[in-house]
Design a protein around this nucleic acid. Sequence first.
DNA 1: ACCACGGCAATTTTT
DNA 2: TTGCCGTGGT
Length: 740
Amino acid sequence: MDDVSPGDVSPLLDDLNPAQREAVSAPQGNMLVLAGAGSGKTRVLVHRIAWLMQVERLSPYAILAVTFTNKAAREMRTRLEALLGLSLRNIWVGTFHSIAHRLLRTHWQDARLPQHFQIIDSDDQLRLVKRLLKDHGIDDERYPPRQVQYFISGCKEEGLRPHQVQTHGDAYLGQMVELYERYQLTCERGGLVDFGELLLRSLELLRDNPRLLAHYRERFAHLLVDEFQDTNTLQYAWLKLLAGEQAGVTVVGDDDQSIYGWRGARVENIRRFEQEFKNTHTVRLEQNYRSTSAILDAANALISHNAGRMGKELWTAGVKGEPISVYAGFNDLDEARFIVDTIREKVDEGFHRREIAILYRSNAQSRVLEETLIRQGMPYRIYGGQRFYERLEIKNALAYLRLLLNRDDDASLERVINVPARGIGTRTVEILRERARSQGVSLWQALHDSVGDGTCKGRAGNALSAFANLIERLDNDTAGLRLHEIITHVNEISGLIDHHRNEKGEKGQARVENLEELVNAARAFTQGETPLMQEAGEGAAALEPFLAEAALNAGDHEADEFEDCVQLMTLHSAKGLEFPVVFIAGVEEGLFPHKMSMEEPGRLEEERRLCYVGVTRAMHKLYLTYAELRRLHGKETFQRASRFLRELPEELLEEVRLRGQISRPVTAARSSRGLAQQESVTAGDGLPTLSLGQRVSHPLFGEGVILNAEGQGERARVQVSFEGEGDKWLVLGFAKLTPL
DNA sequence: ACCACGGCAATTTTT
DNA sequence: TTGCCGTGGT
């Protein structure tokens, strides 16, 4: 083909705004795209790739695009294919982990891994750690398994192997490092690779194999990374190593939406990128296509309270829109009732339920909301929650499957050696563990040795032999079967199905259904929509990729998407989504910002970013609600409005109350039981005894002094001078005033 | 092997 | 308040 000038591919740039165009058509080289919420980030990424292919003449083979979630990777691929109108087999689009996995699978020998290494998830990892602690008789009070796990993952994320960790003679740290070392040894022996290991191992693979590194550097002319603000130290190092001096790198991110610092994400990678990658071109996408300007103004004002930002101000060519509604419930039930009532109104106005989302800071908040939704017969769906492949029954089934592939997988063996119960008690398992440890062999080997030399005989010995025979039998039986048939067989013969069928309650039923669903998933898997399946056949060869898929892609809980449901989720899981109508519930000090994050300025800023993320999810209408009295950990707690509310410009806010109803008069004595039960109270009984000069507190305006008063009962009005807010007249029946 | 009880803590979550 | 964990009883 002849040279293509930009004019010939203008369709690619046609529907883009100037900033997007700049980002898409920038010459190859390093680029940082600061993409605000709703600014068409994915669009730019996808168009950029198309541009690189069509104008810069890069082969899809030379492009690597990295995301954080499988969902994002899928979406990117789909949209790219739609844009180009062709199917792209040999372009690498995937998560950090799936790409690392791919490298390790291809170069398992160079990576010093067994060919059939298995991926373990954090749940398996935790089990492994617990076992380790027990084996070594280490006090799990001083070394809580979670902390140990956190330590190990943390080290890996920083790229540190045990011998590289500086203990400075600290005994506690020393113990941690030793545990890390033991843990790693166990993984090596069982051919197990955890999530952090995938990344670290592939980094080492490239670092220690100059020829491999040269190969991939030559191959990938351009690397693209999405959600760059979420990268951790290891991912940054990985990217830098792979890019080398030659490749062009495009990273897209938003420092204002960095909400995963607590799990190792380093926002500062954005600045580091600008400094360490040569001649970085920075583009800001600030035009927003999602929200009304009222919502964007609120978001801008809120986030301006953070220091050290890269700087970005969202704007829209669209309408001002409705003000942001703030509702102060007198308790959490009242808050929930307000939300559900309002949703009903919105639905009557013509919104679909699925267009409405309720966001909250912590999962515990969902309960009251759910109860209210159920009571009012409003269909809803909770986003998040337990994933399919993380369910107990599924993990058990997968453990059997893993044993078929690899008898030395101790974690799996231990998981199912006595599930369903077959008379192998903790004592027996302990003996096996002891032996495995002292002789440095796997549990499977220890089992055989113990039965062989009579260490375990009688009842226990028989049970152990029976288990070993079961595994061998399953292996033999399933030879030549297709993947889903293998799983059906294993579910049946292992006794898992019966085990759950006999479980009392509806739980067992659900578990049996899940096991059946696993078979369906396997069938779908072999029918090959998943990338991992390309080469594998339908039978046992598909087992390994299927297990990897299960660990890496823990199952999207996006079922029932067709049902028209109100969407409930945490603010974290809302990132990346948008809804016409958004409620943010529990906007209270201590809850949001969460009390665990209020002390350190850095963490508080992350809370604020989380709020920013929440606000920018809303397209047309945003509601912020809070409760003055909330049941927390079984105790009624007085709550104050969140500081974030006060950081929003007042002229964008509108205080709402239920039509014509007084939700609560200002009562001096609040009997918690009474309040929780009463839906509405007529003002008059139990108004606070307020007097001129008295100090009062208002949830939104803070503290002030009563200057003046007029009227009586619920209509009574008082003039209050608030610190920093000026004088205001407030109706006693409406304003939530608390005497101090 | 299984269940019932008491003590205890209690963000956020992807891979 | 819930839910997890370890303990002790059957």
